[in-house]
């Protein structure tokens, strides 16, 4: 159910406005409605994963503001830790800032997802932004899967969504980022506002994969063939796996047949080594990328889930076990 902004505002005002800063850096803005015109509400969540003998455990959870995790699930035989991230307010208004950080210590395997779509509500043309920052630290031989529901960008939003992975060369990842512009079902189209979106993978301080989009409503970018082509769903999936040409052909054929409302682009990035070098001297993860551009959030999600199920054995030699919450 989608809350109206007034409902959301009344919910937030009922919640405490003083938040302990705990261990987080002091520069972060804290709720300050009383002291100035600017409204800022910070929510932070910090997770740490450790490897135990038969499973990955979630050991330390710190949180500020309305971000929560439920008790982890273990639906897999090899101890992958499934975690659901909850943001009870359900969406972000102007000045909101969500920070999610997870550290995977060596040899962990964690799958994080969200039970419902994220929302960036209209910002009423205010200058303040709606920030969401997700950072994963992935140590040697660990594997993170970040499979959130889409983020819905309401008309008039002013959002910034950053997802960044800092991985060790042997760290593995499978992440996606789905942007839904406006709410087609209720004819609430994204005709004003903007959203910056970044999905980045870094290894030892060097960029490995950078995808940054700056979606401005009613712009050349939103109309042009090289841009969004008036599509309302734009999504990128990035994973540290190597798929063969045949595999990619097969996957693409399936996607076009079964999730074909929209366009799919699949590619396997492989750096060419310098002359005289048999292979690159720099150790870093491989990069497989899939993109969707179209009007069907359903086909996009189904397509990404298909790719996840198909490619998971290549990623971490595990069969895909879908989080239960996807089926409810």
């Amino acid at each position: 159910m989608v809350k109206t902004i007034s409902e959301y505002m009344s919910t937030t005002s009922a919640l405490p406005t003083t938040i302990s800063k705990s261990s987080f850096e002091s520069s972060d803005a804290i709720t300050s409605e009383a002291s100035s015109q600017r409204r800022e509400w910070l929510a932070k969540l910090q997770l740490e994963f450790y490897a135990r003998e038969h499973k990955t455990v979630l050991r330390r959870v710190e949180h500020v503001g309305p971000l929560r995790v439920q008790k982890p699930f273990y639906p897999e035989s090899r101890g992958c830790c499934h975690v659901y991230l909850l943001h009870p307010p359900g969406g972000m208004v102007v000045g909101d800032s969500l920070k999610i950080q997870a550290s995977l210590h060596p040899n962990c395997h964690a799958l994080l997802t969200t039970p419902s779509a994220g929302k960036l509500y209209g910002a009423k043309h205010l200058k303040e932004k709606q920030h969401q920052t997700v950072v994963f630290e992935v140590a040697a031989n660990s594997c993170i899967e970040w499979l959130p529901q889409e983020t819905i960008v309401f008309d008039g939003a002013n959002g910034e969504l950053n997802t960044r992975l800092n991985v060790q060369p042997s760290g593995k990842f499978f992440v996606w980022d789905i942007l839904r512009l406006g709410r087609a079902a209720s004819a609430d189209h994204f005709v004003s506002g903007q959203c910056k979106q970044a999905l980045e993978v870094w290894c030892n301080g060097m960029p490995v994969f950078i995808e940054r989009n700056y979606v401005k409503a009613s712009s050349e970018f939103s109309r042009a063939h090289w841009g969004l082509q008036n599509a309302n769903t734009s999504a990128t999936l990035c994973a540290s796996l190597v798929a063969s040409r045949d595999q990619i052909d097969q996957w693409l054929e399936y996607l076009q047949q079964h999730c074909g409302d929209g366009m799919w682009g699949l590619t396997q990035k492989q750096l060419a080594s310098a002359p005289g070098e048999a292979a690159s001297q720099i150790d870093r993860p491989p990069i497989f990328v899939a993109r969707y551009l179209g009007h069907s959030i359903l086909d996009c999600r189904r397509g990404f889930e298909f790719l996840w199920q198909q490619s998971r054995p290549l990623l971490n030699q595990c069969e895909a076990v879908a989080p239960r919450i996807w089926r409810t």
Partner: peptide, 15 residues
């Protein structure tokens, strides 16, 4: 802000 992408071009090139 460097490296802003072009979703349609990325799909065209993949295809």
């Amino acid at each position: 802000n460097m490296g802003l992408g072009l979703p349609g071009l990325a799909i065209a090139s993949s295809m």
